[in-house]
Design a protein around this nucleic acid. Sequence first.
DNA 1: GGAAGCATGTAAAGTGTTACATGATTTT
DNA 2: AAAATCATGTAACACTTTACATGCTTCC
Lengths: 188, 188
Amino acid sequence: MVKLKAPSYLMLGMVRLGARSGYAIKKATDRSTRGFWPTSLAQVYPELGRLERAGLLRRSEDPRGARQRSVYEVTEQGEAALSNWLRSAREAPLQLRDEGLLKLFFADALPREDQLTLVRRQRERAQQAEQVIREEMIPLAEAQATTGARYPAIAAQLGADMYAYARRWFERLEQELTQAGQAYGRDR
Amino acid sequence: MVKLKAPSYLMLGMVRLGARSGYAIKKATDRSTRGFWPTSLAQVYPELGRLERAGLLRRSEDPRGARQRSVYEVTEQGEAALSNWLRSAREAPLQLRDEGLLKLFFADALPREDQLTLVRRQRERAQQAEQVIREEMIPLAEAQATTGARYPAIAAQLGADMYAYARRWFERLEQELTQAGQAYGRDR
DNA sequence: GGAAGCATGTAAAGTGTTACATGATTTT
DNA sequence: AAAATCATGTAACACTTTACATGCTTCC
């Protein structure tokens, strides 16, 4: 019995959504789950092998000309495993690392002017992240929605909305810093 | 010249805020930056050594009875390094891994009833995360604000507000799923 | 007297990314 | 003809966590 973790289910789920080769899976994650679960080719190929040996994926050769190509489909066992995972209440704790937030946390060490610059930069980052999701991910996810998979678009929308909220939050903080001006900062 | 990364500045910043021993730094991060930059003791001690050798921290022995204890303070060089980092526009890209969102992304594989359960669980997780920040982190951060460090409280507030927003977002999705009921799901 | 907390550190294991290595096919 | 994309895989490296190891001090 192999031990399955989130990346295993990511492969299973992606194959199920129609990304049949390792290369296609990597491309699909770059266009969809990258923001909350990135992956690299060096993870994809060994994991596909493991899942095949475990009987959760079935492999077949489907060359394109002289170029070899392995395509996968989810077996009944694989479907069951994915289903059980989706239904289970156990989840690895969310992990987040954001150097920008860390800087914000320590911003008291800066004079007020530089604090403002820092906050503005964080606002811009949130704005850009939102834009990438809206321009690159949502259109693709909505196209997918017409073929029956609604949740990729829902997840993308959640991401865009979260970044939009963060952007507004930083805007508000920017205003407060500008107005309350002289009251704060190292050089008050 | 040593290479400094975000964890280095975390140590520097924490010592600056008054966490003078390795143990105290670890405790402080658990109570403040854990949500956006966690750390472990196995990182803290070697990094403190590096920073001392690089001249950014000054170490002194301050035993408590027979128990040894090294306490640190930030040197002028350390202050400058922290300042430069805070002012620099380069940040490591935000990294996020959330198994819950990954499940949401693949939720089309479930019957509608189980989709609802999944969404409800994510709502509860967001709710709990918000509660932990409000109960455990904000009070401490606000106490700190009275001693001049305002940003720890700002960062904590941002975290709480983000989770509150996510909670409301999941609530809305729950309602939509309940109402639009029979239209969606594997078993439509 | 025992449990919880203070205090420091190392070793092993796990997880993941980047770089290397190779080559075919399609698009410009 | 060159560039981009498709396609597969491995090796080396980086970063982090968990477990191990030890022992003092304070609170109940």
